[in-house]
Design a protein around this nucleic acid. Structure first.
Length: 286
DNA sequence: GCTGTGACCTGAACGC
DNA sequence: TGCGTTCAGGTCACAG
């Protein structure tokens, strides 16, 4: 499932193959794919037509295509299974094709939003003075953003009465981290997912952020090599998604540090993978 | 205001 | 073979 590195790969692909093109027509094939566009599918298409796509931006797992000639942007979230593909116009429709965007040029390609589980979607929104879609103003900067404020993140962590994995997944504190990279970063930092954040020291926060950035940069480095001219890829099943993971999905396999079998625990309707020896659970305070 | 929980959704994997 | 169940997880609405 797409997390920040995958979304960044998509952003780069869109920047190269879609930015600067003028929308000719929009076809919404599944209403749920534009459910965040309150005015509905017809309005979504009408507002896009004849507008030029500007430079593609990203924050965390959201990316957006600004309309170059007005103060609005097409906001995209890939959810768990979304893909944005640049395909030849005559290519067969994908099974889960939800939205098709055609362009007013002779390049012969179109933008397709394909999404099996329909957790993702596109919508059109006004932008703030600094170009951010207004509906994601609450989303924090991501740790690869040069303007991410490490000190402010540390203070926010200490103020929260929560645990470290919850905090990593809270997009209002830090964006772009999903279940996989949270487990990976916690394994690297030797932190149990239920560790309370209130007692975090500055060095501990700094170390954790360092591991989050390392994991994301490593995935980005691999992912960045795998899309070609016609395929703006966020395919969860192929290529760079086979990145080497140290924690996620390794239940029963030996910890790559100490050899202890890795464990999986149900957690918030998800799973948490950890090493019971390297990542000791916090002592329960009664 | 802050924190935690469940619904949404589809298809693969699994058990019987 | 076929059916039912479980699991995957990002976001948001809602409850406490």
């Amino acid at each position: 499932m797409p997390e920040l590195p995958e979304v960044e790969v998509v952003r780069r692909g869109l920047e190269r193959w879609v930015a600067g093109r003028v929308v000719a027509d929009v076809q919404v094939l599944h209403p749920r794919a534009v459910r965040r566009h309150i005015a509905g599918a017809e309005d979504f298409g009408a507002r896009l037509r004849e507008h030029r796509i500007g430079l593609v931006q990203r924050r965390g797992k959201y990316l957006w295509l600004p309309l170059a000639d007005n103060r609005s942007a097409v906001l995209a979230h890939l959810g768990m299974s979304g893909q944005l593909l640049v395909q030849p116009q005559d290519a067969p429709d994908e099974k889960h094709l939800r939205i098709r965007i055609g362009f007013d040029d002779d390049l012969g390609t179109e933008l397709r939003f394909v999404d099996q589980r329909t957790f993702g979607g596109l919508s059109l929104h006004g932008t703030t003075p600094d170009g951010l879609p207004d509906v994601i103003a609450h989303i924090a900067r991501d740790p690869l953003d040069p303007l991410f404020d490490d000190a402010a993140f540390h203070e926010a962590l200490r103020r929260r009465r929560t645990t470290v994995k919850r905090a990593l997944l809270d997009q209002s504190l830090i964006s772009g981290v999903g279940n996989i990279y949270a487990d990976e970063a916690l394994w690297r930092a030797r932190l149990h997912y239920e560790r309370p954040t209130t007692g975090f020291t500055r060095p501990r926060t700094a170390e954790l952020l360092g591991h989050v950035r390392d994991v994301m940069n490593a995935a980005l480095a691999v992912g960045g090599t795998s899309f070609d001219s016609l395929y703006v890829n966020v395919n969860g099943e192929s290529g760079y998604f086979d990145r080497s993971l140290d924690a996620y999905g390794r239940e029963g396999e030996p910890c790559r540090r100490c050899g202890t079998p890795m464990r999986r625990r149900p957690w918030m309707n998800r799973s948490s993978y950890f090493c019971p020896r390297c990542q000791r659970p916090p002592r329960v305070v009664s």
